[in-house]
Amino acid sequence: MFQAHYKLERYSVGLVIAIIIAASIGGIVEIAPLFTIDQTVEEAPGMRVYTPLELAGRNIYVREGCYACHSQMIRTLRDEVERYGPYSLAVESQYDHPMLWGSKRTGPDLARIGGKYSDQWHVAHLENPRDVVPASIMPAYSFLARTQLRTDDLSMHLTALKKVGVPYTDSMIEKAVEDAYGQAAPFSALADGVVTRYGDATHIRAFDGDPGSVSEMDALVAYLQIIGRLTDAAHEQKSSGDAE
């Protein structure tokens, strides 16, 4: 009796092991080499990390599920490069946890949206897309301007990202909340710290037009304006050799 039972067990466990072997090899072969990251991804020495305000904006982009309609990945195809700009490089999303390459363009690609339009355009467009683009089918995000940005836990966000490999320094983590305010309040005492920590090229603006407070609109526009601008690697690549 025990003998027979043991045999049956062995059969089903054997099946399980065979399934695991058959199904795992493909994933391992394709994924493992990508973890020799320094060799998969181009060099971009000047690349900076997201500021706390941009990161908060990115988290709003994640929260609202923007990836469902907007890609952030320009493919190496002529028409895409001419429509959107230089094709995307792996290095450009090296600090993106998660990546937001997307899979569908119900709306246009956003990989080169940074700097393409003014802050006012973005605010008006997010308030009601059809005020700016009459045929748009994007939802209105007017509640962003009405909603104060939650900043109290930003240091924890930076810490979590540091743990998964984003090179935030201790002072960036410590000053995360101040920097979020500083970036949206030009000419304030806090603004200088942002430049010190994240570089001269960092946008210090009242993104939503109101320097007095930091809204979710500030954060999202700050993020949109930095997409594709953390490094110039893609633009340099374009001048040295054309796509296709």
Partner: peptide, 17 residues
């Protein structure tokens, strides 16, 4: 809120795997 341990191109491959 959490942050995925993978980033960028690795995250893309793991995600579509």
């Amino acid at each position: 809120k959490s942050y995925t341990v993978f980033a960028g191109v690795q995250d893309a491959m793991v995600q579509w795997w």
